[in-house]
C-alpha cells in the first residue's frame, strides 16, 4: 500500500484539491482510503465519504494534533490495509509551524496558500523544509511577481521539493498531483518508519490541562522569557 500525508494550515485548499486528485486516482482503478486528523469536529466528514471510499476521522481533542498523529500512524495504516486499500491518504492540519507531520516512508505534501504574503515562507519552518511536494493554491489572486518571489523563497528553504500549483475550485493541477502520489512505491508496514522532524518537549503543566498562569503553577519543562534592563526602552 502507498501512503501520502498532506498537511498545511486551515483553508489552504487541502480537501478541495484532494477531492479532485482522488477522482483521478479512483479512475485508474486504485482503491484509496482517507483519514482526516483534526483537533475539533469540523463537520467535513461527508466530503470524502461522498466518493464512496473508506474514510475515517481522528479528533485529537485536548492533545496536540501532531503528537496525536505520531501515535496513530501505525493504527491508521493497519486500518487502511483491513479496508483493502491500495493507497492511504492522511490529511492533517499543520498547526503551529513548530512541527512537521511527516514520516520518512510516506509521500509528504505541504499545502500552502499564496495569499499568506511573500514574507511567510520563512515562518513555515519544518513543514516546508521536510516536504516532498509543496502544493500551492490561490495563485490566481496574487500578482505574478509576488508568486515568483514566493516560489524562490520556498526553493531556498527546500531545494529538493517539487512545486506544484493547483486550483481547488477548477481542479487544475490535480492530475499532476495524482501522478506524483502514484509514483511512490508500495510499503508493507510502518514499523520501521520515523518522523522527519522531532516534536517539541511539551511536558509542562499546561499540557495536562492547567489554566491558571501564575508562576507557582508552572511545572515540568518550562522556558520563561527573561528581559534585561535595556529591553524596556
Amino acid at each position: 500500500m502507498r501512503i501520502t500525508v498532506i498537511g498545511g494550515a486551515a483553508s489552504t485548499g487541502k480537501t478541495s484539491i484532494m477531492m479532485h486528485t482522488l477522482q483521478h486516482i479512483i479512475a485508474k482503478g486504485i482503491r484509496p482510503a482517507v483519514v482526516k486528523i483534526d483537533c475539533l469536529d469540523a463537520g467535513q466528514d461527508k466530503v470524502y465519504a461522498s466518493l464512496g471510499i473508506p474514510f475515517a476521522i481522528g479528533l485529537s481533542k485536548d492533545l496536540c494534533p501532531d503528537h496525536f498523529l505520531a501515535t496513530n500512524f501505525i493504527a491508521m495504516f493497519k486500518w487502511a490495509k483491513l479496508q483493502k486499500a491500495d493507497l492511504l491518504i492522511i490529511e492533517t492540519a499543520g498547526l503551529c509551524n513548530r512541527c512537521a507531520p511527516f514520516i520518512d516512508l510516506a509521500f509528504s505534501i505541504c499545502s500552502i496558500d499564496y495569499t499568506t504574503s511573500i514574507k511567510a515562507p520563512a515562518k513555515f519552518g519544518p513543514i516546508v523544509k521536510t516536504a516532498d511536494l509543496l502544493l500551492l493554491s490561490k495563485g490566481d489572486l496574487v500578482s505574478q511577481s509576488e508568486r515568483e518571489v514566493f516560489n524562490y523563497r520556498l526553493k531556498e528553504l527546500n531545494p529538493c521539493a517539487v512545486l506544484q500549483e493547483a486550483n481547488g475550485l477548477s481542479g487544475r493541477g490535480s492530475k499532476k498531483l495524482a501522478d506524483y502520489i502514484m509514483q511512490r512505491k508500495d510499503i508493507d508496514s510502518l514499523e520501521e518508519a520515523a518522523l522527519k522532524y522531532s516534536m517539541p518537549s511539551a511536558t509542562c503543566s499546561y499540557c495536562v490541562g492547567e489554566r491558571r498562569i501564575a508562576e507557582c503553577y508552572h511545572h515540568g519543562i518550562v522556558n520563561t522569557m527573561t528581559f534585561e534592563e535595556g529591553d524596556y526602552v
Partner: peptide, 17 residues
C-alpha cells in the same frame, strides 16, 4: 483578479523580485 498583498515599498519589492 490579482492583487498586491505584501506590505513593501515599490522599490524594495522590485529589488527583491
Amino acid at each position: 483578479k490579482m492583487n498586491f498583498m505584501v506590505e513593501m515599498s515599490v522599490q524594495e519589492f522590485i529589488t527583491v523580485h
